[in-house]
Design a protein around this nucleic acid. Structure first.
Lengths: 96, 96
DNA sequence: GTACATTTGTCATTTAATGTCAAGTGAACA
DNA sequence: TGTTCACTTGACATTAAATGACAAATGTAC
C-alpha cells in the first residue's frame, strides 16, 4: 500500500540494517522511521533524497513512488478519486 | 488554472452576486473568497458543499474539480508528476 | 525470564493553513 | 479631479496539522 515505505523497508532488511541504524543516518527517531516504513507517517522530501543516496535508488523511480503515495493519501476514500486524477493529468499535460 | 475557483467566480458573476454577498453566505472574509476564486488559497470541503447548494452544482463534477485542484497543487513543478499520477491511478483502482 | 528490535501511544514543538483586518488598486461616473 | 465601490494585496494573529521526542508495550529469540 504505502509503496515508498515498503521500498525502504525492503532495502533496509536487504542490507541487514536495524531501524536504529538507518534512523541514525537520517537523524530521526527510530519510532518515526518505523512509522514511515509502514506508511503511518509521510516521508519528507529531504529524507527521500537521503534514502536515494543511502540505498543507491533510481531517483526518478523513488520520487515517483513517493509522490504517488502522497496523491493516494489525498484522494483515498474520495468518490471522485479517479475522475480527479484524470482531470489533474490533463492539466499537468497542458502546463507543459 | 484553478478550476474550482474559476467555476465559482463564473457562477457568482452569472448571478450578479458581489464577493461580499457570497462571502457572507459562506461566513468568510471577502478577501478570502477573492483568493479562493483566484486559486491563491485552497477551498475547504465544507465550502465546496455549501457552494454546491448555493449554485445548484452537480456534486460529482464539483468535487472532481476541487479534488483535481488539490492534486495539481501537490504535484505541479514535480518532474515525476505524470508518472506519479499513473501509479496513483493504479493503486486506487486496485483498492476497489 | 532477559535481551533486543520494533511498534504503539502520548504529548510537546514546529510548521502550514486559515482567519482577520487595513490599506491599496482600478474602474465608473459625477 | 475626486469620490465611491468592488475587488485585491499584504501583513499579521490564530488555529489546525505535521513532525519530533520519549516512554511504555509487544513480540521474538535465546
Amino acid at each position: 500500500m504505502n509503496n515508498f515505505g515498503e521500498l525502504i523497508r525492503a532495502k533496509r532488511e536487504d542490507k541487514e540494517m536495524l531501524l536504529r541504524h538507518l534512523a541514525a543516518q537520517l537523524d530521526i527517531d527510530t519510532a518515526q522511521l518505523s512509522k514511515m516504513e509502514r506508511g503511518e507517517r509521510t516521508v519528507k522530501r529531504e529524507h527521500v533524497t537521503q534514502l536515494i543516496n543511502i540505498f543507491n535508488l533510481d531517483p526518478s523511480k523513488a520520487f515517483s513512488v513517493w509522490l504517488s503515495d502522497q496523491i493516494v493519501a489525498l484522494i483515498t476514500n474520495e468518490d471522485e478519486a479517479l475522475n480527479a486524477l484524470k482531470m489533474a493529468e490533463k492539466q499537468i499535460k497542458d502546463l507543459k
